[in-house]
Amino acid sequence: MTALDAPRVRGTGPLRSGTVLIGRSLRHSLRDGEGLVMAVALPVMMLLLFTYVFGGAILDDGYIDFVVPGVILTCAGFGASSVAVAVNRDLHLGAMRRFRTLPIRSWTVLVGHVAASVLRNLLATAIVIAVALALGFRPTAGPGRWALVVILVALWILAITALFAGIGMIAGSPEAASGYGFVLLFLPYLSSAFVPTETMPSWLRPVAEHQPMGPLVDALRALLIGGADVQLLPPILWSLGITAAAGVLVTQVLRRSQDR
């Protein structure tokens, strides 16, 4: 008998166990002070670097308004990448095996990691936006548009965190998980996050415009600094698609590990 078909014990339903495991992951995060600082410090450093060092040579005026959406998504990537290592560590240090002996669903362990990461990343993103506002970022968005920004960012954080959790499940070691994650962190650069795609070589432009972050950056920029033509469907579909694909990957890996 596996944990999946174990008899229900009072108080150990998916909601209860999920809440406990989210708490566990959040406690781990709070104890990893260095990781928390880096999740905010790296995007802030990037914001300062691009605004004050490169910005003047890229756009004559208002570069900070152009770059903030990209930095927000870069922040999400930095924060989510730690999930791959955390999941992999749980897998290789035997925590997953121990959880499997308890009357809880296997996937709630991953839900704990993912949900805690989403909360942590939303907080880090809020801090980065606050720093951007202090540096002169002036969005023109009203409450409705801000709500859409929060939804888009939350969906993207969920998608990329789920993807990193999947990477953590299949990687051979925490170092490998970290390495695979590093590759994904390059995605924002190959988009319109930091420079307009028109300035890129013709062979690179289609990649930049059609990869998941391209439509998302454009949508966030249009919502935050004004733009009549806001394309919401492509970024939402990308985020949901990545989340679904990561979910399938995680389910397959969990099923395979339980069959052993």
Partner: peptide
């Protein structure tokens, strides 16, 4: 690679 292909075209030296 990043500066030559991605950022370089937008930077006015």
């Amino acid at each position: 690679l990043l500066f030559v292909f991605v950022l370089g075209g937008a930077i006015d030296t």
